[in-house]
Amino acid sequence: MDYLLLQMLNGVQLGLLMFLLAAGLTLTFGIMDLVNLAHGSLYMMGAYIAWTLIGWTDSFVLGALLALPVTFLLGVAVEAVVMRRLYARDHLDQVLATFGLILFFNELVRVIWGPAGKSLTVPAFLNRTVEILPGVPYPAYRFAIIVVGAVVALLLAWLVARTRLGMLIRAGASNRRMIAALGVNIELLFTLVFGLGAVFAALAGLMAAPLTSVKIGMGDDILIVAFVIIVIGGIGSIKGAFVAAMIVGQIDIVGRAFLPDFLKTFMTASAASSAAPAISQVLVYLLMAGVLIWRPTGLFGQRT
């Protein structure tokens, strides 16, 4: 039972981390209709910038907090230089251009920070385990990710549901022309939303950094999963991204924690141990294919 709870928590933590990444992606997608493959690069830049700032300030929390506005500015710059020109284009041009940006950012990082990865140590006050239930220890840092992730998710929900910006975001996701007609400064809105997405990506990147190390291409690995999440959830839907991230987080953990034993109930041990990793590796793709066959625009996507 404790074990089950522990694994579920692991799934929640993973899901929340991926939600942060997916949130920015689904926002830019829903409002600007922009396929941004370079979102993973912002995740990476967030981690590298945080690494530098944490080194300067000698404080994890301070450095991390400073990294967020810096990545916001970076996001705004990227938006102004490249993205702005892509909104009116078809998805193919966007894929091509943002694929180019990935190559650029990966090499840029190598020029600035060198080819070897960097490591961020967990801040001292989190470098221990907490007892979530009597006798069930859980790494404090992972627990902190859950807390921060949940707070940000709530904040985002409030932002989208209760504020003027949120109203525009919702309006933009369902009908782009309408907000233009309302006389809103679209350019400013788009820039802000893109910057916001960059901040979420950076937050995910710098929070993941002490677990995964800071390395070139770290965003490329996770980007495809983030795309899978927003597609399952339905593009443009924050709620969809959240639900899908939670599902994907749980499925990933289940595939790794329980699948081998489950397969052993009806397969030989050696067949099960070679089949389980193969299946868990493709589980999210199977899920996505299944969802799309069932609902071609995802769980919470706009029907056409």
Partner: peptide, 26 residues
């Protein structure tokens, strides 16, 4: 299976099936 979807959904579902075969190869 995938031609029922449009736009980005089509991009992603073709990617998903390709990844499936890729991992079978692995």
């Amino acid at each position: 299976l995938s031609l029922r979807t449009r736009g980005v959904y089509f991009i992603m579902i073709t990617l998903a099936f390709a990844q499936l075969v890729y991992y079978v190869g692995v």
